[in-house]
Amino acid sequence: MNLFRLFGDLSHLASIFILLQKIQSTRSCRGISFKTQALYATVFITRYLDLFYEWVSLYNFTMKVFFIASSCYILYLMKYKYRPTHDPSIDTFRVEYLLGPCVVLALLFHYKFSIPELLWSFSIFLEAVAILPQLFMLQRTGEAETITTHYLAALGAYRALYIPNWIYRYFTEDMVDPIAVTAGLVQTALYLDFFYVYFTKVLQGQKFELPA
């Protein structure tokens, strides 16, 4: 464990609390892509299967349980409790275009041809692109509530912080995970446009609005 990873994970935790706060305080999931949230739940469930047969640490165990539980809870909130506030007509990204290629990539790139390792690879690739339905929705509506942009910023910061973590681990532990690093770089790159608007507008106190 190093500080980059710790702060990355904390940022990830923060993003989930911000999202829950947004849903509870506005009593609405307007502006949140159900598809992205469903993809994240899929990512956590397929990646953290090792909960059942591998012990890493109490930290690791607790975080994994939290991510699975919170992502399922968010799906419940969106699907049942605040269902009327979710508008599927603007959440139109075709997730099969993401799932298909991720299955193929996992079959091509993995560390071991076993069910858990294939699912692990799949989850890594899927996480890299899971934010796309959300960003697509943002692009379509052209604006976002400030609290939603804080959620996205915290999520993006989590991924960005994993990059110095890998550099640090390369030098201190001689450890490289090419699949996670490649997917992580792609994932972080997807946030660049968003970060630009977030830093130049939201953090200057303006509303998140994309130029027409």
């Binding site: 990873r5 591998e54 390792e117 890594i124 996670a180």
Partner: peptide, 10 residues
């Protein structure tokens, strides 16, 4: 030793 991904990461 098996080569596997960074399973200690989240």
């Amino acid at each position: 030793e098996e080569t596997t991904g960074a399973h200690d990461e989240l």
